[in-house]
Design a protein around this nucleic acid. Structure first.
Length: 270
DNA sequence: ATGATCTCCTGAGCGC
DNA sequence: TGCGCTCAGGAGATCA
């Protein structure tokens, strides 16, 4: 589900709403989440959330003892702020009860997500191999060119590779390529040098605009307070097979690349 | 070392 | 109504 704009929208909601809250109880469903946690989640009891950060598609809750609660939403994860009398949800796997009666629920039907408590000191190791954040100002055209030069993968796969640029997923990788007029099938190293600044601008553009719209909701993405994002109406190609390209009216085509759908305009993406 | 493929899960939507 | 199939915002492990 969630790519950078959705995760950042959730981060902002959490940072506004749970900073300073103390965790008084932790309830776990017992269902296994990906990878487990280095420390038992019960150690969260008594901790206060000091701040909420984001790196790539991870949420990092900084706690008052220096520990970090790392959340990844996978394909179907949600983080919901609910009240003590909210109805039980089938797929709530972790529920943090806060000192003011509210609850923070990690809901994830497919269980591709992660909830990991990392002890104080050091950086969560799963983040160490991630590349530069797509919105990091240090990512400039020269840096992007260097990375593209080193890759024989199709541009679509290149943009999904979190070890290079972190934060893009299927939606925004494809929307950025449409905006830049580049085919998802083009080999990364063959991207014309002159188009690289446009590609970077396109990546930033789709992410920033979606962020302004609080993310893209299909069936089930909602932010912390349960509100869907409104970016779906701004998508040019994603899940729009057969519909006219907004730029040249050629019907959008769907292909499969490394097992996942790609949508693009064969008329104006080269 | 890079890139493609498989895998982990549940649920929605579709054709029959 | 139900069955079987395909597909879904991700990414770690494995294999060539």
């Amino acid at each position: 589900m969630p790519e950078l704009p959705e995760v950042e929208t959730i981060r902002r909601g959490l940072d506004q709403n749970i900073r300073g809250a103390r965790i008084v109880r932790v309830h776990e469903s017992g269902a296994r989440l990906r990878g487990g946690s280095p420390r038992p989640l019960q150690e969260l009891v008594g901790r206060t959330v000091q701040r909420v950060d984001r790196q790539a598609k991870f949420l990092l809750l900084g706690l008052d003892d220096g520990a970090t609660l790392l959340l990844h939403l996978g394909m179907s994860g949600k983080v919901l702020l609910t009240t003590h009398d909210s109805p039980e949800r089938v797929h709530t796997h972790v529920r943090l009860e806060l000192d003011d009666g509210r609850r923070l629920e990690f809901v994830d039907p497919r269980r591709f997500g992660t909830v990991r408590l990392h002890p104080p000191g050091g950086h969560p190791p799963e983040l160490s191999h991630y590349g530069i954040d797509a919105l990091d100002p240090a990512l400039d055209a020269a840096a992007l060119e260097r990375m593209l030069k080193g890759s024989r993968a199709p541009l679509k796969s290149f943009l999904l590779d979190q070890t290079k640029i972190a934060g893009l997923g299927n939606i925004y990788a494809l929307e950025a390529l449409w905006r830049a007029g580049l085919s998802p099938r083009r080999i990364a190293k063959n991207t014309p040098k002159g188009r690289i600044p446009l590609l970077l601008e396109s990546i930033r553009g789709v992410l920033m605009e979606s962020l302004a719209n609080k993310g893209t909701s299909f069936n089930d993405y909602v932010d912390t307070l349960g509100d869907p994002g409104t970016n779906i109406g701004f998508l040019a190609v994603f899940q729009r097979t057969g519909m006219p390209c907004p730029r040249c009216a050629t019907p959008v085509r769907r292909i499969v690349q490394t097992g996942r759908s790609s949508f693009y305009c064969p008329g104006c993406q080269r």
